[in-house]
Design a protein around this nucleic acid. Structure first.
Lengths: 339, 339
DNA sequence: ACGTGTCAGTAACACGTGACAGCTACGGTA
DNA sequence: TACCGTAGCTGTCACGTGTTACTGACACGT
């Protein structure tokens, strides 16, 4: 360590503020932390002015040390192929947390990865926004460690780990396909080295809706995102003339199948109907325009953030946060020309 | 199950390790921090065993408080439309940092945003991986605060803030277009509310290559990602029969222009040649297949990580990290049928 | 004058760590 | 025996914060 850089402009501490304001450090601390009712306005103003003049911001390390919690909000994103709306979502969290003086950071994680959980426990963030990584049990461990976890999804059946949003997506896809007279259904997941946390709940939704309409459990296939591979998956599915309906994991998968259908001369949507997820821009630029399920991620995030802003000691019921009624507004079918 | 977890499963501290090993806390601290040469093997082993048995991991807060630096590595990503390879890139950073016991987090930021910089200074991360957010001056402030910044891009001309990677991308696009006999060039940026940090260096690369080939500075337009808007941008560009070549900001922009070209019956690539960036899967699935510049993000990241792993007191020259020779292997044209 | 209550503010502690000076015992040397 | 160097380890400080128990002063009622 030869290059010991000194020009680091030492940050003002609460002691500096206290000295400048002419009070003790504890007084400063209490006033800055909202216990200002105890002190007269004159004192309060002096302290605030001194803090502002020195551009005082409390040291995260010091605060974390004494409270046991950092002021970091971690957004945990599954390391699957996430839709294109990630940045919009994170923006919402960032804005919502900025008012509370929290820093937002994103962490990609393999689903159900224990290492990720340990890392979270280690970091002791003030809150974790879980975009589909942890199981209920893992969430409980975080909560036990004093970390707030959103969304606080209350599963329909206890112990069930299926996200109601994804279930609804599956149901909507099936409903849209059946609208056109399709009688055979297939679920097309993404062929990818990484795991897919959204697959199971979506497939569950597809199965439920199919069952409700008197159809058997659909077949599930995995589609790679290149022409030859997609073709190899699609071809064996075409066994007779009955129109086939495919619920695709996302718009990219739908486009891959669309490309394959064109190669073997399959008419879309007459012989093959497709529904994607995410309403990507490209999906609306190609022809035929893609039918897809659009998710209002920013609004969904805002809902979560409202939950985050709730007072800590959440007495009574913890506000089910995502009512079915809300969901219908946030998840909608965009009808293109492929279904 | 109802795992009755204690409200706070207090993490083992170095004092616990010391008690268990039968030595003082300072001994533990020194041994665990690599000063083990001073101690006999027997002592060292006992301490290590105790630490392992208690699953001791030092408190980030405590360490940060005394060292003044946290052990967080922040990847700062511009809040522009980033390519689809973000997660792969971040994975590389995560793996590289895991060995050093660091946590990686991602932060989206508006380009040149002062608030983001303040947040960084506040967080005092051990290192910042800058994916194109900060200016040279801002990087210098981070360095002065003791934070390591990678990549340590040494600009060709002092004070120049243009990323050589993006410049190369622009040159390659022009070279590919000119190969087909195009004589008129246009740069198509993305019409988006967010700023675009990659635009200027790419346009610079395009301009330089055009100039080197005896062409004037190309026109620059902004393309929205929907059919009507793209059409409105493309139409006025078609003034005569001379073939038009468009360097697109990314594959999505290229697809939008492709769609517009089809609408007005423009032959691709005879009348309109396109080159995208990012080699998205969808770009290779549509027809005609997209010509595009592929960037080996993971490899690029590995290069940066090697820089991160370098010893702190970087004596001598700071290793220019990105030689032109390396670049040629990392950034390559993928020829489709649109150019 | 005395006890009581309130207000305004403070001293002291705890959090967990790294750095460094210093202590003890022991063996060697004068 | 007296002195000294050193290996091996420990004591203590500092980092910046939030919290709690406490103090001094003053007002009030008896």
């Amino acid at each position: 360590m030869t290059t010991e850089i000194q020009p680091s402009p030492r940050r003002a501490t609460s002691a500096d503020v206290a000295r400048k304001a002419g009070f003790s450090r504890s007084t400063v601390s209490q006033i800055l932390n909202g216990e200002d009712a105890r002190f007269p306005a004159a004192t309060r103003d002096k302290v605030m002015a001194a803090a502002a003049a020195l551009d005082y911001r409390p040291s995260r390390a010091g605060r974390a040390l004494v409270t046991g919690l950092s002021d970091i909000v971690v957004v945990v994103v599954p390391n699957a192929t996430y839709g294109p709306h990630l940045q919009d979502s994170v923006d919402r969290v960032t804005n919502a947390s900025a008012t509370a003086g929290m820093s937002v950071v994103v962490r990609f994680a393999a689903p159900d990865d224990e290492g990720t959980l340990l890392s979270m426990l280690d970091l002791r963030p003030a809150a974790v926004v879980d975009m589909g990584v942890f199981t209920q049990a893992q969430r409980a461990r975080l909560t036990a460690a004093g970390t707030r976890v959103v969304p606080n999804r209350t599963p329909l059946n206890p112990g069930e780990d299926l996200d109601p949003v994804d279930i609804l997506i599956g149901r909507l896809q099936v409903a849209e396909l059946l609208r056109t007279g399709v009688r055979r259904l297939v679920y097309a997941a993404l062929e990818d080295g990484r795991l897919d946390p959204f697959g199971p709940p979506r497939f569950e939704g597809i199965t439920r809706e199919a069952s409700a309409r008197g159809l058997p459990t659909p077949l599930s296939v995995r589609v790679p995102l290149e022409a030859r591979g997609a073709l190899a998956v699609l071809e064996p599915l075409v066994v007779d003339d009955s129109p086939l309906g495919v619920c695709c994991y996302n718009d990219d998968v739908a486009i891959a199948l669309l490309s394959a259908a064109r190669t073997i001369g399959l008419a879309v949507p007459q012989q093959l109907a497709l529904v994607g997820v995410d309403r990507t821009d490209v999906g609306q630029l190609i022809s035929p325009r893609l039918s897809t399920v659009s998710i209002d991620q920013p609004a969904l995030m805002d809902t979560m953030m409202r939950e985050l802003a709730e007072p800590r000691g959440g007495r009574g019921e913890p506000a089910p946060s995502l009512l079915q009624a809300d969901l219908a507004a946030l998840v909608q079918v965009v009808r293109g020309e492929t279904s």
